[in-house]
Design a protein around this nucleic acid. Structure first.
Length: 576
DNA sequence: GCCGTTTTCGGCCCGACTGTTTTCAGTCG
Protein backbone atom coordinates (compact mmCIF):
# COMPACT_ATOMS: atom_id res chain seq x y z
CA UNK A 1 0.00 0.00 0.00
CA UNK A 2 1.40 3.36 -1.06
CA UNK A 3 1.27 5.91 1.77
CA UNK A 4 1.64 9.65 1.36
CA UNK A 5 2.50 12.31 3.94
CA UNK A 6 -1.15 12.95 4.69
CA UNK A 7 -1.65 9.26 5.57
CA UNK A 8 1.24 9.34 8.03
CA UNK A 9 -0.02 12.63 9.48
CA UNK A 10 -3.53 11.24 9.94
CA UNK A 11 -2.29 8.24 11.92
CA UNK A 12 -0.32 10.54 14.23
CA UNK A 13 -3.16 13.00 14.77
CA UNK A 14 -5.63 10.16 15.38
CA UNK A 15 -3.16 8.83 17.92
CA UNK A 16 -3.11 12.23 19.61
CA UNK A 17 -6.91 12.26 19.85
CA UNK A 18 -7.02 8.69 21.16
CA UNK A 19 -4.41 9.43 23.84
CA UNK A 20 -6.49 12.41 24.89
CA UNK A 21 -9.70 10.39 25.16
CA UNK A 22 -7.98 7.67 27.11
CA UNK A 23 -6.82 10.30 29.59
CA UNK A 24 -3.13 10.32 28.70
CA UNK A 25 -0.59 13.08 29.20
CA UNK A 26 -1.61 16.35 27.57
CA UNK A 27 1.92 17.11 26.46
CA UNK A 28 2.26 13.73 24.85
CA UNK A 29 -0.95 14.56 22.97
CA UNK A 30 0.56 17.84 21.87
CA UNK A 31 3.72 16.08 20.74
CA UNK A 32 1.78 13.79 18.40
CA UNK A 33 -0.26 16.73 17.12
CA UNK A 34 2.90 18.69 16.44
CA UNK A 35 4.54 15.81 14.61
CA UNK A 36 1.39 15.33 12.52
CA UNK A 37 1.39 18.99 11.57
CA UNK A 38 5.04 18.86 10.57
CA UNK A 39 4.34 15.94 8.25
CA UNK A 40 1.25 17.49 6.70
CA UNK A 41 3.22 20.60 5.74
CA UNK A 42 6.34 18.80 4.57
CA UNK A 43 7.10 19.76 0.95
CA UNK A 44 8.88 16.46 0.19
CA UNK A 45 7.82 12.90 0.90
CA UNK A 46 8.45 11.72 4.45
CA UNK A 47 9.71 8.43 3.04
CA UNK A 48 12.55 10.20 1.28
CA UNK A 49 13.59 11.68 4.63
CA UNK A 50 13.34 8.25 6.17
CA UNK A 51 15.66 6.94 3.44
CA UNK A 52 18.13 9.69 4.25
CA UNK A 53 17.94 8.75 7.95
CA UNK A 54 17.24 12.32 9.07
CA UNK A 55 13.72 12.03 10.47
CA UNK A 56 14.68 13.43 13.87
CA UNK A 57 15.93 16.64 12.27
CA UNK A 58 12.28 17.51 11.59
CA UNK A 59 10.70 19.75 14.18
CA UNK A 60 8.57 17.83 16.66
CA UNK A 61 9.91 14.42 15.66
CA UNK A 62 12.19 12.73 18.13
CA UNK A 63 13.47 9.20 18.50
CA UNK A 64 10.17 7.71 19.55
CA UNK A 65 7.95 9.10 16.80
CA UNK A 66 10.68 8.45 14.23
CA UNK A 67 10.48 4.77 15.19
CA UNK A 68 6.68 4.91 14.91
CA UNK A 69 6.96 6.32 11.37
CA UNK A 70 9.34 3.58 10.32
CA UNK A 71 6.92 1.05 11.74
CA UNK A 72 4.03 2.65 9.83
CA UNK A 73 5.93 2.29 6.59
CA UNK A 74 6.65 -1.38 7.23
CA UNK A 75 3.32 -2.48 8.67
CA UNK A 76 0.83 0.35 8.10
CA UNK A 77 0.58 0.98 11.83
CA UNK A 78 2.53 1.15 15.11
CA UNK A 79 2.25 -0.29 18.58
CA UNK A 80 0.79 2.64 20.53
CA UNK A 81 -1.83 3.24 17.86
CA UNK A 82 -2.85 -0.42 17.79
CA UNK A 83 -3.11 -0.55 21.59
CA UNK A 84 -5.29 2.56 21.74
CA UNK A 85 -7.46 1.34 18.89
CA UNK A 86 -7.98 -2.00 20.61
CA UNK A 87 -9.19 -0.26 23.78
CA UNK A 88 -11.70 2.10 22.14
CA UNK A 89 -14.55 1.74 19.62
CA UNK A 90 -13.71 2.25 15.94
CA UNK A 91 -15.74 5.42 15.44
CA UNK A 92 -15.16 7.14 18.75
CA UNK A 93 -13.23 10.00 17.08
CA UNK A 94 -16.42 10.98 15.22
CA UNK A 95 -17.86 12.04 18.58
CA UNK A 96 -15.33 14.85 18.99
CA UNK A 97 -16.68 16.44 15.81
CA UNK A 98 -19.81 17.35 17.78
CA UNK A 99 -19.41 20.94 18.99
CA UNK A 100 -19.19 21.01 22.75
CA UNK A 101 -17.87 17.47 23.09
CA UNK A 102 -14.21 17.22 23.92
CA UNK A 103 -12.11 14.27 25.00
CA UNK A 104 -13.24 14.29 28.63
CA UNK A 105 -16.94 14.19 27.85
CA UNK A 106 -16.44 11.61 25.10
CA UNK A 107 -14.58 9.41 27.58
CA UNK A 108 -17.33 9.80 30.16
CA UNK A 109 -20.02 8.93 27.60
CA UNK A 110 -18.13 5.80 26.61
CA UNK A 111 -17.30 4.69 30.16
CA UNK A 112 -20.75 5.28 31.59
CA UNK A 113 -23.04 4.53 28.65
CA UNK A 114 -20.86 2.59 26.21
CA UNK A 115 -21.40 5.24 23.50
CA UNK A 116 -18.93 4.69 20.65
CA UNK A 117 -20.39 6.37 17.57
CA UNK A 118 -22.72 9.16 16.45
CA UNK A 119 -25.79 6.93 16.09
CA UNK A 120 -25.45 5.66 19.66
CA UNK A 121 -24.89 9.23 20.88
CA UNK A 122 -28.02 10.43 19.12
CA UNK A 123 -30.10 7.61 20.56
CA UNK A 124 -28.79 8.24 24.09
CA UNK A 125 -29.58 11.95 23.86
CA UNK A 126 -33.07 11.15 22.60
CA UNK A 127 -33.74 8.67 25.39
CA UNK A 128 -32.69 11.17 28.06
CA UNK A 129 -29.90 8.97 29.38
CA UNK A 130 -27.23 11.66 29.05
CA UNK A 131 -28.87 14.27 31.28
CA UNK A 132 -28.49 12.03 34.29
CA UNK A 133 -24.72 11.60 34.08
CA UNK A 134 -22.51 13.48 36.55
CA UNK A 135 -21.16 16.63 34.90
CA UNK A 136 -23.91 16.51 32.26
CA UNK A 137 -27.34 18.09 32.48
CA UNK A 138 -30.46 18.78 30.48
CA UNK A 139 -28.86 21.64 28.58
CA UNK A 140 -25.81 19.62 27.57
CA UNK A 141 -28.09 16.85 26.35
CA UNK A 142 -30.18 19.28 24.29
CA UNK A 143 -27.04 20.85 22.84
CA UNK A 144 -25.73 17.43 21.82
CA UNK A 145 -28.97 16.61 20.01
CA UNK A 146 -28.92 19.90 18.17
CA UNK A 147 -25.25 19.70 17.27
CA UNK A 148 -25.57 16.17 15.89
CA UNK A 149 -28.40 17.35 13.70
CA UNK A 150 -26.33 20.32 12.50
CA UNK A 151 -23.30 18.12 11.83
CA UNK A 152 -25.43 15.78 9.74
CA UNK A 153 -26.84 18.70 7.73
CA UNK A 154 -23.68 20.57 6.87
CA UNK A 155 -20.65 18.50 7.81
CA UNK A 156 -17.43 20.43 7.58
CA UNK A 157 -15.97 23.54 6.08
CA UNK A 158 -17.37 25.89 3.39
CA UNK A 159 -15.55 27.30 0.38
CA UNK A 160 -13.86 30.61 1.18
CA UNK A 161 -15.58 32.30 -1.73
CA UNK A 162 -19.01 31.52 -0.33
CA UNK A 163 -18.00 32.49 3.21
CA UNK A 164 -16.70 35.88 2.08
CA UNK A 165 -19.96 36.63 0.30
CA UNK A 166 -21.69 36.20 3.65
CA UNK A 167 -18.99 37.91 5.73
CA UNK A 168 -18.61 41.10 3.67
CA UNK A 169 -22.08 42.55 4.34
CA UNK A 170 -21.75 41.69 8.02
CA UNK A 171 -18.45 43.50 8.48
CA UNK A 172 -19.88 46.47 6.59
CA UNK A 173 -22.93 46.51 8.88
CA UNK A 174 -20.63 46.51 11.91
CA UNK A 175 -18.55 49.38 10.50
CA UNK A 176 -21.70 51.37 9.90
CA UNK A 177 -22.59 51.35 13.63
CA UNK A 178 -21.91 54.71 15.30
CA UNK A 179 -20.36 52.91 18.31
CA UNK A 180 -17.81 51.03 16.15
CA UNK A 181 -14.43 52.57 15.45
CA UNK A 182 -13.00 49.62 13.54
CA UNK A 183 -14.26 46.23 12.38
CA UNK A 184 -12.55 43.47 10.40
CA UNK A 185 -13.06 39.93 9.24
CA UNK A 186 -10.50 37.77 11.04
CA UNK A 187 -9.99 34.01 11.23
CA UNK A 188 -9.11 31.70 8.37
CA UNK A 189 -11.05 33.88 5.92
CA UNK A 190 -8.52 36.68 6.52
CA UNK A 191 -5.74 34.19 5.91
CA UNK A 192 -7.46 33.26 2.61
CA UNK A 193 -7.69 29.60 3.52
CA UNK A 194 -9.59 27.88 0.73
CA UNK A 195 -12.28 26.68 3.10
CA UNK A 196 -13.48 28.13 6.39
CA UNK A 197 -15.17 26.45 9.34
CA UNK A 198 -16.78 29.56 10.78
CA UNK A 199 -16.62 33.34 10.45
CA UNK A 200 -14.71 35.50 12.92
CA UNK A 201 -15.29 39.22 13.34
CA UNK A 202 -13.43 41.70 15.55
CA UNK A 203 -14.45 45.22 16.41
CA UNK A 204 -13.19 48.20 18.42
CA UNK A 205 -15.73 50.09 20.47
CA UNK A 206 -16.21 51.77 23.84
CA UNK A 207 -19.73 50.35 24.00
CA UNK A 208 -19.41 46.59 23.39
CA UNK A 209 -22.94 45.90 24.58
CA UNK A 210 -24.42 48.00 21.77
CA UNK A 211 -22.26 46.21 19.20
CA UNK A 212 -23.29 42.77 20.50
CA UNK A 213 -26.94 43.81 20.41
CA UNK A 214 -26.62 44.87 16.77
CA UNK A 215 -24.74 41.66 15.93
CA UNK A 216 -27.42 39.32 17.26
CA UNK A 217 -30.07 41.42 15.51
CA UNK A 218 -28.48 41.00 12.07
CA UNK A 219 -30.77 39.62 9.38
CA UNK A 220 -30.31 35.88 9.01
CA UNK A 221 -29.36 35.14 12.61
CA UNK A 222 -30.95 31.82 13.52
CA UNK A 223 -29.67 31.38 17.00
CA UNK A 224 -27.44 32.95 19.64
CA UNK A 225 -25.22 30.25 21.11
CA UNK A 226 -23.06 32.35 23.44
CA UNK A 227 -23.26 35.90 24.66
CA UNK A 228 -20.88 37.45 27.14
CA UNK A 229 -19.60 40.99 27.73
CA UNK A 230 -16.86 40.81 25.05
CA UNK A 231 -17.72 37.78 22.94
CA UNK A 232 -20.84 36.62 21.11
CA UNK A 233 -21.41 33.56 18.91
CA UNK A 234 -24.34 33.16 16.53
CA UNK A 235 -25.55 30.67 13.96
CA UNK A 236 -26.45 32.29 10.65
CA UNK A 237 -28.89 31.03 8.07
CA UNK A 238 -27.14 28.25 6.22
CA UNK A 239 -25.80 26.90 9.52
CA UNK A 240 -22.61 28.96 9.42
CA UNK A 241 -21.34 29.98 12.84
CA UNK A 242 -20.06 33.52 13.37
CA UNK A 243 -18.16 34.86 16.38
CA UNK A 244 -17.65 38.49 17.33
CA UNK A 245 -15.20 39.89 19.86
CA UNK A 246 -15.14 43.54 20.89
CA UNK A 247 -12.35 45.47 22.66
CA UNK A 248 -11.24 49.08 22.89
CA UNK A 249 -9.40 50.72 20.02
CA UNK A 250 -6.00 50.60 21.73
CA UNK A 251 -6.37 46.82 22.09
CA UNK A 252 -7.60 46.29 18.54
CA UNK A 253 -4.32 45.15 16.97
CA UNK A 254 -3.87 42.49 19.63
CA UNK A 255 -7.43 41.26 19.16
CA UNK A 256 -7.24 41.21 15.38
CA UNK A 257 -3.98 39.30 15.60
CA UNK A 258 -5.36 36.83 18.12
CA UNK A 259 -8.49 36.09 16.13
CA UNK A 260 -6.71 35.84 12.79
CA UNK A 261 -4.71 32.81 13.92
CA UNK A 262 -3.69 30.32 13.01
CA UNK A 263 -3.71 28.55 16.30
CA UNK A 264 -0.39 26.92 15.42
CA UNK A 265 1.20 30.25 14.53
CA UNK A 266 0.17 31.56 17.94
CA UNK A 267 1.57 28.58 19.77
CA UNK A 268 4.96 29.21 18.16
CA UNK A 269 4.80 32.94 18.81
CA UNK A 270 3.89 32.44 22.44
CA UNK A 271 6.81 30.13 22.96
CA UNK A 272 9.00 32.84 21.55
CA UNK A 273 7.39 35.38 23.85
CA UNK A 274 8.06 33.27 26.93
CA UNK A 275 11.71 32.96 26.01
CA UNK A 276 11.80 36.77 26.14
CA UNK A 277 9.97 37.06 29.47
CA UNK A 278 6.74 38.06 27.73
CA UNK A 279 3.28 36.60 27.28
CA UNK A 280 0.68 37.18 24.60
CA UNK A 281 -3.09 37.33 24.94
CA UNK A 282 -5.87 38.90 22.89
CA UNK A 283 -5.30 42.07 24.93
CA UNK A 284 -1.67 42.48 24.02
CA UNK A 285 1.89 41.48 24.74
CA UNK A 286 2.67 41.72 28.47
CA UNK A 287 5.62 41.19 30.75
CA UNK A 288 5.29 37.68 32.10
CA UNK A 289 4.94 38.87 35.69
CA UNK A 290 2.56 41.73 34.84
CA UNK A 291 -0.15 42.36 37.40
CA UNK A 292 -3.77 43.08 36.48
CA UNK A 293 -4.00 46.62 35.19
CA UNK A 294 -0.37 46.87 34.11
CA UNK A 295 -0.16 48.34 30.61
CA UNK A 296 0.84 46.03 27.74
CA UNK A 297 4.21 46.19 26.02
CA UNK A 298 2.28 46.24 22.72
CA UNK A 299 -1.37 46.03 21.67
CA UNK A 300 -2.34 48.80 19.28
CA UNK A 301 -1.42 47.30 15.92
CA UNK A 302 -0.38 43.89 14.66
CA UNK A 303 2.99 45.33 13.66
CA UNK A 304 3.48 46.43 17.29
CA UNK A 305 2.83 42.86 18.47
CA UNK A 306 5.50 41.46 16.15
CA UNK A 307 7.91 44.27 16.95
CA UNK A 308 7.64 43.44 20.67
CA UNK A 309 8.92 39.97 19.74
CA UNK A 310 11.76 41.40 17.62
CA UNK A 311 10.06 40.35 14.41
CA UNK A 312 8.92 42.19 11.30
CA UNK A 313 5.21 42.16 10.43
CA UNK A 314 4.07 38.78 9.11
CA UNK A 315 1.18 38.84 6.61
CA UNK A 316 -1.95 36.88 7.62
CA UNK A 317 -1.62 34.52 4.65
CA UNK A 318 1.71 33.28 6.00
CA UNK A 319 0.56 32.61 9.57
CA UNK A 320 0.37 28.84 9.33
CA UNK A 321 3.42 27.74 11.33
CA UNK A 322 5.04 26.73 8.05
CA UNK A 323 8.41 28.38 8.55
CA UNK A 324 7.25 32.00 8.56
CA UNK A 325 8.57 32.81 12.03
CA UNK A 326 12.03 31.51 11.22
CA UNK A 327 11.95 33.43 7.93
CA UNK A 328 10.89 36.57 9.78
CA UNK A 329 13.71 36.06 12.25
CA UNK A 330 16.22 35.89 9.37
CA UNK A 331 14.52 38.93 7.79
CA UNK A 332 13.85 36.66 4.81
CA UNK A 333 10.08 36.95 4.46
CA UNK A 334 8.87 37.15 0.86
CA UNK A 335 7.68 40.49 -0.53
CA UNK A 336 4.28 39.00 -1.33
CA UNK A 337 2.52 39.54 -4.62
CA UNK A 338 -0.50 41.87 -4.62
CA UNK A 339 -3.48 42.11 -6.90
CA UNK A 340 -2.16 45.37 -8.39
CA UNK A 341 1.01 43.59 -9.55
CA UNK A 342 -0.89 41.61 -12.20
CA UNK A 343 -0.94 43.16 -15.65
CA UNK A 344 -3.09 40.70 -17.54
CA UNK A 345 -5.25 37.62 -17.56
CA UNK A 346 -4.32 34.68 -19.77
CA UNK A 347 -7.41 32.51 -19.55
CA UNK A 348 -11.02 33.45 -20.37
CA UNK A 349 -13.97 32.45 -22.49
CA UNK A 350 -16.34 34.31 -24.82
CA UNK A 351 -19.59 33.58 -26.59
CA UNK A 352 -17.51 31.80 -29.23
CA UNK A 353 -17.50 28.79 -26.89
CA UNK A 354 -19.26 28.77 -23.50
CA UNK A 355 -18.75 32.36 -22.27
CA UNK A 356 -21.50 34.90 -21.81
CA UNK A 357 -19.87 37.97 -23.38
CA UNK A 358 -18.23 38.90 -26.67
CA UNK A 359 -14.53 39.49 -27.26
CA UNK A 360 -15.17 43.24 -27.21
CA UNK A 361 -17.17 43.13 -23.99
CA UNK A 362 -14.46 41.07 -22.30
CA UNK A 363 -11.75 43.46 -23.51
CA UNK A 364 -13.58 46.53 -22.24
CA UNK A 365 -14.22 44.94 -18.83
CA UNK A 366 -10.59 43.83 -18.56
CA UNK A 367 -9.38 47.33 -19.42
CA UNK A 368 -11.67 48.81 -16.80
CA UNK A 369 -10.27 46.31 -14.31
CA UNK A 370 -6.79 47.64 -15.06
CA UNK A 371 -5.32 44.96 -17.29
CA UNK A 372 -2.99 45.91 -20.14
CA UNK A 373 -3.36 42.59 -21.97
CA UNK A 374 -5.66 39.58 -22.04
CA UNK A 375 -5.65 36.31 -23.91
CA UNK A 376 -8.92 34.99 -25.30
CA UNK A 377 -8.82 31.24 -24.72
CA UNK A 378 -12.03 29.57 -25.78
CA UNK A 379 -12.47 25.81 -25.70
CA UNK A 380 -11.28 23.48 -28.45
CA UNK A 381 -13.43 21.17 -30.57
CA UNK A 382 -13.54 18.09 -28.30
CA UNK A 383 -15.32 20.07 -25.61
CA UNK A 384 -18.56 19.81 -27.56
CA UNK A 385 -20.70 20.55 -24.55
CA UNK A 386 -18.87 23.88 -24.25
CA UNK A 387 -19.26 24.59 -27.98
CA UNK A 388 -15.51 24.17 -28.55
CA UNK A 389 -13.83 25.62 -31.63
CA UNK A 390 -12.75 23.49 -34.58
CA UNK A 391 -9.92 24.76 -36.84
CA UNK A 392 -12.22 26.66 -39.17
CA UNK A 393 -14.08 28.44 -36.37
CA UNK A 394 -10.81 29.18 -34.60
CA UNK A 395 -9.47 30.86 -37.76
CA UNK A 396 -12.55 33.09 -37.91
CA UNK A 397 -12.20 33.75 -34.17
CA UNK A 398 -8.63 34.97 -34.72
CA UNK A 399 -9.89 37.43 -37.31
CA UNK A 400 -12.56 38.61 -34.88
CA UNK A 401 -9.86 39.28 -32.29
CA UNK A 402 -7.89 41.34 -34.84
CA UNK A 403 -11.04 43.37 -35.46
CA UNK A 404 -11.45 44.13 -31.76
CA UNK A 405 -7.81 45.21 -31.48
CA UNK A 406 -8.36 47.61 -34.37
CA UNK A 407 -11.37 49.01 -32.55
CA UNK A 408 -10.03 49.81 -29.06
CA UNK A 409 -6.85 51.02 -27.36
CA UNK A 410 -5.44 50.74 -23.90
CA UNK A 411 -5.39 46.97 -23.91
CA UNK A 412 -3.93 44.28 -26.14
CA UNK A 413 -6.20 41.35 -26.92
CA UNK A 414 -4.12 38.26 -27.66
CA UNK A 415 -5.14 35.13 -29.54
CA UNK A 416 -5.20 31.94 -27.59
CA UNK A 417 -7.00 28.68 -26.96
CA UNK A 418 -7.70 26.40 -24.05
CA UNK A 419 -6.89 23.23 -25.88
CA UNK A 420 -8.06 19.90 -24.51
CA UNK A 421 -5.45 17.37 -23.52
CA UNK A 422 -7.09 14.29 -24.97
CA UNK A 423 -7.25 10.90 -23.30
CA UNK A 424 -3.89 9.80 -24.71
CA UNK A 425 -2.12 13.12 -24.07
CA UNK A 426 -2.37 14.41 -27.63
CA UNK A 427 -3.68 17.94 -28.22
CA UNK A 428 -7.10 18.63 -29.63
CA UNK A 429 -5.99 20.88 -32.53
CA UNK A 430 -3.27 20.63 -35.20
CA UNK A 431 0.22 21.71 -34.11
CA UNK A 432 0.66 24.30 -36.88
CA UNK A 433 -2.58 26.01 -35.95
CA UNK A 434 -1.58 26.10 -32.27
CA UNK A 435 1.72 27.67 -33.27
CA UNK A 436 -0.07 30.56 -34.97
CA UNK A 437 -1.61 31.57 -31.64
CA UNK A 438 -0.04 33.95 -29.13
CA UNK A 439 -0.69 31.74 -26.12
CA UNK A 440 -1.83 28.14 -25.62
CA UNK A 441 -3.27 26.76 -22.39
CA UNK A 442 -3.69 23.01 -22.28
CA UNK A 443 -6.19 21.47 -19.88
CA UNK A 444 -7.74 18.13 -19.02
CA UNK A 445 -11.53 18.13 -19.31
CA UNK A 446 -12.34 14.47 -19.86
CA UNK A 447 -11.43 11.00 -18.60
CA UNK A 448 -10.49 12.41 -15.22
CA UNK A 449 -10.47 9.11 -13.41
CA UNK A 450 -7.37 7.72 -15.04
CA UNK A 451 -4.88 6.24 -12.61
CA UNK A 452 -1.92 8.27 -11.42
CA UNK A 453 0.63 6.92 -13.88
CA UNK A 454 -1.69 7.25 -16.87
CA UNK A 455 -2.80 10.77 -15.96
CA UNK A 456 0.75 11.91 -15.26
CA UNK A 457 2.03 10.52 -18.57
CA UNK A 458 -0.92 12.11 -20.36
CA UNK A 459 -0.26 15.62 -19.05
CA UNK A 460 3.51 15.26 -19.44
CA UNK A 461 2.97 14.48 -23.12
CA UNK A 462 1.22 17.84 -23.49
CA UNK A 463 4.01 19.58 -21.57
CA UNK A 464 6.62 17.99 -23.83
CA UNK A 465 4.74 18.79 -27.05
CA UNK A 466 6.45 22.12 -27.59
CA UNK A 467 3.13 23.79 -28.46
CA UNK A 468 1.88 24.69 -25.01
CA UNK A 469 2.61 27.69 -22.74
CA UNK A 470 0.71 26.74 -19.62
CA UNK A 471 -1.25 23.90 -18.05
CA UNK A 472 -4.71 25.06 -16.98
CA UNK A 473 -6.28 24.04 -13.64
CA UNK A 474 -3.64 21.33 -13.25
CA UNK A 475 -5.47 19.03 -10.82
CA UNK A 476 -9.04 19.49 -12.09
CA UNK A 477 -10.66 19.76 -8.70
CA UNK A 478 -13.94 21.57 -8.02
CA UNK A 479 -14.12 22.68 -4.39
CA UNK A 480 -16.63 20.60 -2.50
CA UNK A 481 -17.77 18.89 -5.71
CA UNK A 482 -14.98 16.99 -7.41
CA UNK A 483 -11.75 15.68 -6.01
CA UNK A 484 -8.50 16.54 -7.77
CA UNK A 485 -7.40 13.91 -10.21
CA UNK A 486 -4.50 11.73 -9.32
CA UNK A 487 -1.35 13.22 -10.81
CA UNK A 488 2.29 13.30 -9.75
CA UNK A 489 2.73 17.02 -9.11
CA UNK A 490 6.46 16.77 -8.50
CA UNK A 491 7.00 15.06 -11.86
CA UNK A 492 4.78 17.64 -13.53
CA UNK A 493 6.82 20.50 -12.03
CA UNK A 494 10.09 18.97 -13.20
CA UNK A 495 8.79 18.46 -16.74
CA UNK A 496 7.43 22.03 -16.87
CA UNK A 497 10.82 23.37 -15.79
CA UNK A 498 12.59 21.42 -18.49
CA UNK A 499 10.21 22.42 -21.28
CA UNK A 500 9.45 25.97 -20.12
CA UNK A 501 5.76 25.48 -19.50
CA UNK A 502 4.09 27.42 -16.67
CA UNK A 503 1.53 26.03 -14.25
CA UNK A 504 -1.68 27.95 -13.67
CA UNK A 505 -3.18 29.08 -10.43
CA UNK A 506 -6.77 29.09 -11.59
CA UNK A 507 -8.52 31.77 -9.53
CA UNK A 508 -12.04 30.59 -10.37
CA UNK A 509 -14.05 30.62 -7.15
CA UNK A 510 -14.91 26.95 -7.47
CA UNK A 511 -11.42 25.80 -8.39
CA UNK A 512 -8.42 27.47 -6.72
CA UNK A 513 -6.21 25.07 -8.65
CA UNK A 514 -3.21 24.76 -8.18
CA UNK A 515 -3.72 24.95 -4.46
CA UNK A 516 -1.37 26.83 -2.16
CA UNK A 517 0.97 23.98 -1.15
CA UNK A 518 1.46 22.87 -4.74
CA UNK A 519 2.07 26.41 -5.94
CA UNK A 520 4.68 26.84 -3.23
CA UNK A 521 6.30 23.58 -4.25
CA UNK A 522 6.48 24.74 -7.87
CA UNK A 523 7.97 28.10 -6.96
CA UNK A 524 10.54 26.50 -4.67
CA UNK A 525 11.61 24.36 -7.61
CA UNK A 526 12.13 27.54 -9.62
CA UNK A 527 9.05 27.20 -11.82
CA UNK A 528 7.08 30.41 -12.39
CA UNK A 529 3.30 30.43 -12.24
CA UNK A 530 0.52 32.31 -13.98
CA UNK A 531 -2.63 33.48 -12.19
CA UNK A 532 -5.79 33.49 -14.31
CA UNK A 533 -9.52 33.78 -13.72
CA UNK A 534 -10.79 31.42 -16.45
CA UNK A 535 -13.76 33.76 -16.38
CA UNK A 536 -16.80 33.06 -18.51
CA UNK A 537 -18.24 36.56 -18.15
CA UNK A 538 -17.18 40.20 -18.08
CA UNK A 539 -17.95 40.42 -14.36
CA UNK A 540 -15.49 37.67 -13.50
CA UNK A 541 -12.16 39.51 -13.53
CA UNK A 542 -12.44 40.41 -9.84
CA UNK A 543 -12.04 36.73 -9.00
CA UNK A 544 -8.35 37.25 -9.66
CA UNK A 545 -8.16 38.26 -5.98
CA UNK A 546 -8.80 34.66 -4.97
CA UNK A 547 -5.86 33.52 -7.10
CA UNK A 548 -3.69 36.17 -5.48
CA UNK A 549 -4.81 34.82 -2.10
CA UNK A 550 -3.59 31.37 -3.10
CA UNK A 551 -0.34 32.85 -4.41
CA UNK A 552 0.30 34.76 -1.19
CA UNK A 553 -0.34 31.62 0.85
CA UNK A 554 2.24 29.99 -1.43
CA UNK A 555 4.79 32.69 -0.44
CA UNK A 556 4.94 33.99 -4.03
CA UNK A 557 6.64 37.24 -4.93
CA UNK A 558 5.71 39.16 -8.11
CA UNK A 559 8.84 37.92 -9.90
CA UNK A 560 7.57 34.33 -9.58
CA UNK A 561 4.33 35.10 -11.42
CA UNK A 562 4.73 35.64 -15.15
CA UNK A 563 1.66 37.79 -15.76
CA UNK A 564 3.03 40.49 -13.48
CA UNK A 565 5.36 41.26 -16.42
CA UNK A 566 4.68 43.31 -19.57
CA UNK A 567 3.63 40.96 -22.40
CA UNK A 568 6.96 40.82 -24.25
CA UNK A 569 8.95 40.27 -21.05
CA UNK A 570 6.59 37.51 -20.08
CA UNK A 571 6.89 35.79 -23.43
CA UNK A 572 10.67 35.91 -23.20
CA UNK A 573 10.51 33.27 -20.47
CA UNK A 574 8.83 30.85 -22.85
CA UNK A 575 11.42 31.35 -25.59
CA UNK A 576 12.93 27.99 -26.26
C1' DG B 1 6.85 12.82 23.64
C1' DC B 2 9.86 16.81 22.45
C1' DC B 3 13.20 20.22 23.43
C1' DG B 4 17.46 23.24 24.82
C1' DT B 5 20.69 31.52 24.61
C1' DT B 6 16.78 28.66 31.62
C1' DT B 7 20.11 22.36 27.64
C1' DT B 8 19.69 15.98 29.53
C1' DC B 9 15.36 17.68 33.54
C1' DG B 10 11.51 20.21 33.92
C1' DG B 11 9.02 22.62 31.50
C1' DC B 12 5.42 22.69 27.62
C1' DC B 13 0.15 29.38 25.15
C1' DC B 14 -3.86 31.98 26.95
C1' DG B 15 -8.44 33.68 28.03
C1' DA B 16 -13.85 33.65 27.29
C1' DC B 17 -17.91 31.36 28.00
C1' DT B 18 -21.20 27.56 29.29
C1' DG B 19 -23.15 24.46 32.24
C1' DT B 20 -23.11 22.30 36.24
C1' DT B 21 -21.82 23.59 39.97
C1' DT B 22 -21.75 26.57 44.79
C1' DT B 23 -16.03 27.52 43.06
C1' DC B 24 -14.71 25.30 38.66
C1' DA B 25 -13.99 21.76 34.81
C1' DG B 26 -14.50 21.34 30.05
C1' DT B 27 -14.42 23.13 25.52
C1' DC B 28 -13.20 26.28 22.03
C1' DG B 29 -10.38 29.09 19.15
Amino acid sequence: MKMNNADYARLLSDTAALIEISGGNTFRVRAFEGAARTLSKLPVSVESIMDAGTLTSLSGIGKSIAQDLISIRATGSFELYDTLRADLPDHILDLTRVQGLGPKKVKALYDKLGIGDLDQLEAAALSGAIAGLPGFGQKTQDNISREIERLRRVGGRRPLTLALMIAQPIVEALRALPQVQRAEIAGSARRWRETVGDLDFVAASDDPEAVMAAFVALPGVQEVIARGPTKTSIILAGELQADLRVVTLDQFGALLHHFTGSKEHHVELRKRARARGLKISEYGVFKIDAADGDPPVASRTEADIYAALDLPYIAPELREAAGEIEAAERRALPALIELADLRGDLHMHTTASDGRHSILEMALAARAFGHTYIVITDHSQSSTIANGLDPARLRQHMLDIDAVNAQIDGIEVKKGIEVDILKDGSLDLPDDLLDELDFVIASVHSNMRQDRDTMTARVLRAVESGHVHAIGHPTGRLLGQRDPFDIDIEALIQACLKHRVALEINAGAGRLDLKDEHARLAAQAGLPLVINTDTHSAEGFAQLAFGVGVARRAWLEPRQVLNTLPWDDMMAWFAR
